[in-house]
Nucleic acid binder design. Structure first.
Lengths: 145, 145
DNA sequence: ATTTGTGCAAATCGTTTGCATCTGA
DNA sequence: TCAGATGCAAACGATTTGCACAAAT
């Protein structure tokens, strides 16, 4: 009884259903990437990172598809895009309201546990509405000049 | 007596001295870019923006030099780099501690006037020290889907 | 004279796009 | 069947780099 159902059970979630629920066709690649992304806890990864991971898992997907998938997942609310680096774009599997440490030099993101209280955010400029407030705590490993 | 001194006086500051004080050779291009940058209030610009402005002012500088200059100025503490967009890098002539609105769709930065109080920032991960805390208030023009 | 900066064009990096082919419903 | 997804390779935009030449001390 080692069928695909058992596999889904083992992963703790049914990626096919999750994709369907988001209006995305459960294609081989999307399911595979989704399982890589959401198998374990919160993660921050770039397109390239994810592709490498896929290769290691013997899933072959083109980089273009990885990008497509990441953006589709983001649009579907399964991922959150974080731009802190200027160079690359990070995708966060934690879509809840939270903030980040950005480790300079290592170029990695770490979730800030717990809420950061932000004193009243001044009203946005005339005719604007706030869509989100992001706090980035930049840090570096001690001893790194 | 329309000498270079008079020019400096007119601009309200001596860019040559300012560069020297920062350990930068006051070359024609650096002085010109510096004067464009710091002539009026706080500004947020990209390398390309600055080059266009230079062209308009009949100062010819290569894009490579604009990039070099912006980075050197940043290193010297005359500018602050802001990455909120993923695509381009903004340089802020206001180096004081402050935060930004980022207008989606228009891709422009606006200073947040006044302080944003940030409730205690959780300690950074082991072995790390905080270098800066940045708040980006993303907003959009009302009516823009 | 020596050091440092500049311009150009080519190279690089992350990301996107066009299009022919394949696949899931 | 056939809309929608994928892969590839070329296109892209922002930024960097290598190197010959020019300018500052």
């Amino acid at each position: 009884m080692t069928n695909s159902w058992a596999q889904e059970k083992h992963d703790g979630f049914d990626m096919v259903a999750r994709l369907r629920a988001s209006g995305l066709r459960p294609t081989r690649q999307r399911v595979a990437l989704g399982e890589l992304l959401f198998a374990c806890g919160d993660r921050h990864l770039t397109a390239e990172t994810l592709q490498e991971e896929a290769q290691r898992a013997n899933v072959q997907v083109s980089l273009a598809t990885v990008y497509n998938t990441l953006h589709q997942f983001t649009e579907a609310g399964l991922l959150r895009e974080v731009s802190v680096d200027g160079a690359r774009t990070y995708f966060d599997t934690n879509v809840s309201d939270h903030h980040h440490y950005f480790v300079e030099g290592e170029n990695c993101l770490i979730d800030v546990d717990g809420q950061i209280r932000i004193g009243e955010v001044p009203a946005p400029p005339e005719g604007m509405e706030v869509t989100s407030v992001e706090v980035v705590v930049r840090c570096r490993r001690i001893g790194t000049s």
